[in-house]
Write a protein that binds this DNA or RNA. Sequence first.
DNA 1: AATTCTAACTAACAAGCGTTAGTTTTGTTA
DNA 2: TAACAAAACTAACGCTTGTTAGTTAGAATT
Lengths: 189, 189
Amino acid sequence: MKTISRKQEIITVASSLFNEKGYKAVSMRDIAKAIDIKAASLYNHIKSKQEILSEIILKVAEEFTTGMENVVSENISAIKKVEKVIELHIDITVNHSQALAALNNDWMHLEEKDLIAFVKMREDYEENFRKIIKQGMDTGEIKSYHPEVILFSILSTLRTLYLWYQKRGKVDVNILKKDMVSVLIKGIV
Amino acid sequence: MKTISRKQEIITVASSLFNEKGYKAVSMRDIAKAIDIKAASLYNHIKSKQEILSEIILKVAEEFTTGMENVVSENISAIKKVEKVIELHIDITVNHSQALAALNNDWMHLEEKDLIAFVKMREDYEENFRKIIKQGMDTGEIKSYHPEVILFSILSTLRTLYLWYQKRGKVDVNILKKDMVSVLIKGIV
DNA sequence: AATTCTAACTAACAAGCGTTAGTTTTGTTA
DNA sequence: TAACAAAACTAACGCTTGTTAGTTAGAATT
């Protein structure tokens, strides 16, 4: 019978606390207490508080990056790509909803090296999304509103999904995907 | 010639710093340094760090509340109400974009009394928005998707607008309103 | 049985936190 | 010009922060 490593437990517990109060408001003693050990003992498993944050954030950031790269490289219509991006977000949200809180709110507390890497990933991601939308406008699949407004509107919804997912409890993933695709792509009128 | 009060200056500077790094990551010494005085001098003008946070957050929260109440009480179609809510958000975003960072990310650090008041306002706001959408579904103005998904989708976009507004610099407010109304209401296809 | 490894512990550190007390400077009013 | 109020200052408080050093108990390996 295999149990998860203590390091993973620390990261999971920290994710949950960061999710509630934010990185800066959670102390190493808070994390330790939640695991029922002393703060100093954490350092047998992790290098620093920074390391915890960076593991949480960069791991999901990489999932977004590779997921987006897969979508972009597929030979399908722009709308179909947008659909796949929506599904990517929902999958990650369902599996790592607490990590997304840190990713969205605490990325600025990454140390310089990680911060630069993160911002780069984020910009590349947005740029890829932008290209998909422009492709859709070129082919006439997507209406020619200001592309930045469309990009922002969809991405905002997807990035905030973790908040609603946590509040409403476990919604069925497939229903969620279907509804989100409908609302985001077809609009409400 | 009248200049703004020191208290207001503190709150404005604090808003800006909270916007960058979050409430817990900004110290009273940071705020003081940005004004070029000593931390202790801040207390000639404000009661506590908490007071700064609560003034920042509750002031805009109240703008949302009264704005929404005005919209709800008007005798217009549901779609028209949604449009007015969108415009309300854009106006507040343009005038208080930094305060919105604190409102979105640091509300949980309000002291109990203010926290309760804030959460109540937030819930009431969402409930009013929900009613507008349901009204629109009853009259057939709005497609009958899961209303919660529509609510969440529009509200996420509006609540995150401050981030984009800050990044893209001053966009013309009227153009922004027109585009947002188009994208959010008519969708992209 | 002796040794090594793992993961906990206690104790303590220097630095930073929000805040208070008491004092001095500055600017306005009598 | 003397008096007063506003707003700055210095100094310090008790507490919390992330982290390190050194130690110990138990498990795994030799």
